[in-house]
Amino acid sequence: MNLVLRPHGTWVIVLSFIFSFMLSIMPLPIWISAWRPDWVAMVLIYWCIAIPHRTGVATGWSVGIIHDVLNNTLLGQHALSLCIIAYISVKLHLRIRLFPRLQQAISIAGLIIINQTLSIWIYNIFTNFQIDWSVIFSAISSMILWPWLFVILRDMRRSYRVF
């Protein structure tokens, strides 16, 4: 069995991240914007558990920097939280892969809560901002959408043979 695999299908990964960025800056009505799923974190978690030898902490960090520029937050705010998320999901990738879909969605929600809490906490150090329940809202909507995102990304990964 030939285990020396050359990276293949990088453009699929890049494209999925571009789509997640676009979804995360798409204008939404104010009442629903608290429920916006954390698309970037979800896509990052998917690639970290699917191909942990390629995407990992460094990917999480660079994606986070772009996220910071797009959202006009401190440079490094999302980078820090996303690289920690990437670390946890690479560390646990074998376990998360084996979970049934529902349990997987719940663990994703947990990761997203960690991600949001970290970035709000960092933001709080430098400015004054109350932490509210919106952290939970976006984790819930991400949890609901995770199975669909997982299926879509898995099919893309298989048909374009990303490994």
């Binding site: 990992g56 902490v57 986070g64 401190l74 820090l80 690289c83």
Partner: peptide, 14 residues
Amino acid sequence: LKMIIFVLLSITLM
């Protein structure tokens, strides 16, 4: 190790 390096890097950047 990589994670720690990147975390420190982000803290410095911020």
